[in-house]
Design a protein around this nucleic acid. Structure first.
Length: 794
DNA sequence: TAGGATTTAGTTTTT
DNA sequence: CTAAATCCTA
């Protein structure tokens, strides 16, 4: 069998494996072939870390440790095969491939943890593309959903049911409000936001209510928080619910207290990979360490320069001290950037080099130098928005797509000036963050119905829906029911279901019973198992008369709500299609509770996208605008006098700058209205940290008189309605507005608010919209989406 | 209890 | 300035 010396065999195998992974660079390949023991990959922005993760997993599954191992079982046929492959590009035979492998790893022994569903989804997708069936068997998911999955299996050890509810931040807030009320704490002195934040930090550091109380000592404030913490946890338990932080800390507790469970998962996850390691908090660190166990086949990928969630408990220490925690750890730096131009990278490097607390790395690229960074000083935020809008329209006229553009700001409030301008100029846009899909009232209401159907002891959500739509059941009644429930040790739902048996509820009993009756109907329907989730959802909508309760369907806001409810319906349907036999109400609710709207961000739609710099992490765009580079905005006021916070802001600047592939615009305004008062801010210090020669500066000359007839919507309500109207054009091809586009034909004379008069040259259908090519009298030929253009016939 | 009037608090937030 | 939370009255 063996016909080569093992040394020569290893050489040959290495050559073949290197060729197998020849599409990645040397550093990346080193990370891919380092399969055993702890590994730290310091991956700069745009250095292809997902590629490394995917290839590393592929290598584990296909070849195991063949690159390092000297064991060899190659036949002469194999060797001939390999030579052929190396010299003549003949594909390797499957047999040779299998002979090459040295202790290959089964996909189910691999755990890959990310922070966002989007990142997990991307990873899964790329694994499936590369490895097919085997790729889908890798456990790739977020911290939170991995933990939820573990807890559903072993939650009984912690006295939780297997269908516990996951509370989101809104639920937590409501619950904490109740706790503080119960404790008689004045929210003006100690707001529930502050308390929740404090508790979240406690959970991040694995501090139990008891330990927290002991640490509180004499301090009154802390002692109060300790009591609130205790009560909050108790209520969660009664509701069979966990908040986001509990998912992690309870999993840690489960593994620490149950050696058999720990062993089970240590055996299961023989290889662990963690993405965005710089964002892990202490609890997540402990969790990873527990799972990695003594084998320590742990590979973490991160970038200390992109740590921007310290305020949420992420501890940069985890990455800075990885080598100390795991003395045998190998560190690999990925510094070649594949995303941005040299100019953009130089700017990013220059800014971040002002930070003291960092491991230090310098990004470089083979990409072209690219155009200079455009800096622009606007007069105020409207002028700033105006400038951005103009640049986008010009770019689109030159052949760019709207989706090439992203605007990244420090605060969500900065979006409104942009929004107004874009509505005016007919620029299609989407805002990520702010009001999320799953935070909308109507969606939360329906989710609450489904939650109660799934878990009747969820009092919080029961309270949410019991009078929604209005059933004339008020606080008074609910408080009475809640008290009775406490005395009996039964759930509130039980009490409501038996309302006529309790004297204090006699008056409202018919209403309570009616509510209980319809809920029972839903619960029976769910338990019978003979209906789909979509049918259940439709039944809930119908029996509760929810849609009718929203009000006049002619109202745009009501229409928006209804379309959101339809969207939820199709999400449910999609979930059922994806999960087939395994689909369950429980499963859907869990998936939904861990979902955010970055996850719904689809890059296919051709619109400009706006979001905070934080949300943009991990994304990239050809052209990026960074408005509000002013001291006081970015860096924010709170950060200016704290060196630590300033460094975090600088990392955020680094993240923001490195989102751009080709062109970067940085803007500041001489004055800006913020929370109702006008501020004059100096240009951001970060701007001064970028070398002069990388930038080209312009400034607004004078305040232009708005032309008559170009009246803007004045209130944000009007803006929203106008935006909604535009949005409807997309969703409803049958609507009257959608036919507007069809009214335009080549040769039509039109007038655009920004470009003036022109003639339609061509009409191309695109999705539900139409792309118009228009020759303007003064501005040349532009391409514009009909539904967004607000064109008038001239 | 519902709905309108008034007050008040507003970085960032992968889950 | 704006949106949500709370207050107040019918």
């Amino acid at each position: 069998m063996v016909s080569l010396l093992s040394e020569a065999s290893l050489q040959l195998r290495r050559q073949v494996l290197e060729k197998e992974f020849s599409r990645i660079n040397d550093r990346q390949r080193e990370a891919v072939f380092t399969v055993n023991g702890p590994l730290l990959v310091l991956a700069g922005a745009g250095s292809g870390k997902t590629t490394v993760l995917v290839n590393r997993i592929a290598n584990l599954i296909r070849y195991g440790s063949a690159y390092q191992d000297t064991a060899s079982q190659l036949s002469e046929q194999d060797i001939a095969d390999m030579q052929e492959y190396l010299h003549h590009d003949t594909p390797l035979s499957e047999i040779t491939r299998s002979h090459l492998a040295v202790s290959p790893v089964a996909p189910w022994h691999i755990l890959a943890i990310t922070f966002t569903n989007k990142a997990a989804g991307e990873l899964k997708q790329r694994l499936a593309n590369m490895l097919g069936e085997a790729g889908s068997q890798v456990w790739a998911s977020t911290f939170h959903s991995s933990c939820a999955r573990i807890l559903r299996q072993f939650g009984d050890r912690l006295d939780y049911s297997t269908h516990f509810t996951i509370y989101d931040s809104d639920d937590s807030k409501r619950l904490m409000k109740n706790c503080l009320k119960e404790l008689g704490v004045d929210e003006k002195i100690l707001s529930c936001k502050v308390v929740l934040n404090e508790i979240s930090r406690a959970k991040d550091t694995l501090t139990t209510p008891k330990a927290y109380q002991q640490a509180a000592g004499d301090d009154n404030r802390t002692a109060t928080i300790a009591r609130a913490y205790q009560m909050y946890q108790q209520h969660l338990k009664e509701a069979d619910a966990m908040d986001f932080d509990d998912l992690i800390s309870c999993t840690v507790q489960l593994l620490q207290e149950n050696p058999d469970v720990l062993e089970h998962f240590q055996k299961k996850f023989r290889y662990i990979m963690v993405d965005e390691y710089q964002d892990t908090d202490h609890a997540q660190y402990v969790l990873i360490k527990l799972l990695a166990g003594t084998d320590g086949n742990l590979c973490v990928v991160g970038d200390d320069d992109q740590s921007i969630y310290k305020f949420r408990g992420a501890t940069i220490e985890n990455i800075l001290s990885f080598e100390k925690t795991f003395p045998t750890a190998k560190t690999i730096r990925l510094e070649q950037n594949y995303r941005s131009t040299q100019t953009i990278l130089n700017a990013a490097n220059a800014v971040i080099s002002n930070n003291k607390e960092r491991k230090g790395k310098t990004l470089w690229t083979k990409n072209p130098v690219g155009s200079k960074i455009q800096t622009h000083t606007a007069i105020n935020e409207q002028d700033e928005a105006d400038y951005i809008g103009k640049q986008i329209l010009e770019g689109v006229a030159d052949g760019r797509k709207f989706s090439d553009y992203a605007i990244l700001y420090r605060m969500n409030t900065q979006s409104s000036a942009l929004e107004k301008n874009f509505v005016k100029s007919g620029i299609p846009y989407r805002i990520i963050g702010g009001l999320r899909f799953y935070e909308r009232k109507e969606i939360r209401d329906m989710i609450a119905y489904l939650s109660v159907i799934n878990n009747a002891s969820d009092e919080m959500r029961l309270r949410r829906i019991i009078n929604q739509p209005k059933r004339s059941i008020g606080d008074k009644t609910l408080a009475a029911a809640s008290q009775i429930a406490d005395q009996l040790g039964e759930s509130v739902f039980y009490v409501i279901d038996h309302a006529n048996e309790f004297e204090p509820l006699k008056r409202t009993a018919p209403k309570l019973l009616q509510f209980a009756h319809i809920m029972r109907g839903f619960m029976d329907m769910n338990e019978s198992g003979s209906h789909t989730l979509k049918e259940l959802y439709d039944k809930v909508l119908e029996d509760t008369n929810y849609i009718a309760s929203l009000g006049n369907p002619a109202n745009l806001e009501v229409q928006d709500r209804i379309s959101n409810l339809r969207q939820l319906e199709s999400n449910i349907q999609q979930y059922e299609e994806e999960n087939g036999e395994l689909a369950s109400l429980d499963g859907f609710l869990q998936e939904v509770s861990l979902m955010t709207d970055i996850d719904n961000y689809d890059d296919k739609a051709d619109t400009v996208v706006m979001m905070t710099m934080h949300s943009a992490k991990g994304l990239e765009f050809p052209v990026v605008f960074l408005p509000g580079f002013e001291d006081g905005i970015f860096p924010g006021v709170q950060a200016i006098y704290s060196p630590e916070q300033l460094e975090e802001e600088r990392r955020l600047a680094y993240v923001a700058i490195t989102r751009a592939r080709e062109q970067l615009y940085i803007l500041n305004a001489q004055s800006r209205m913020i929370f109702g008062s006008t501020n004059r801010n100096r240009p951001s210090r970060f701007l001064q940290e970028i070398p002069e020669e990388l930038m080209e500066h312009t400034a607004a000359r004078s305040w232009k008189q708005p032309k008559p007839g170009t009246a803007l919507p004045v209130s944000s309500k009007e803006v929203r309605e106008a935006a909604m109207e535009s949005a409807l054009h997309f969703g409803a091809p049958q609507s009257a507005q959608a036919h507007k586009a069809l009214q335009f034909r080549p040769g039509d004379q039109v007038e655009h608010r920004a470009f003036g008069k022109g003639m339609v040259l061509s009409v191309t259908p695109m999705g539900n919209d139409h792309l118009l090519e228009i020759a303007f009298e003064s501005k040349g030929t532009k391409r514009i989406m009909a539904n967004f253009a607000h064109l008038k016939r001239a």
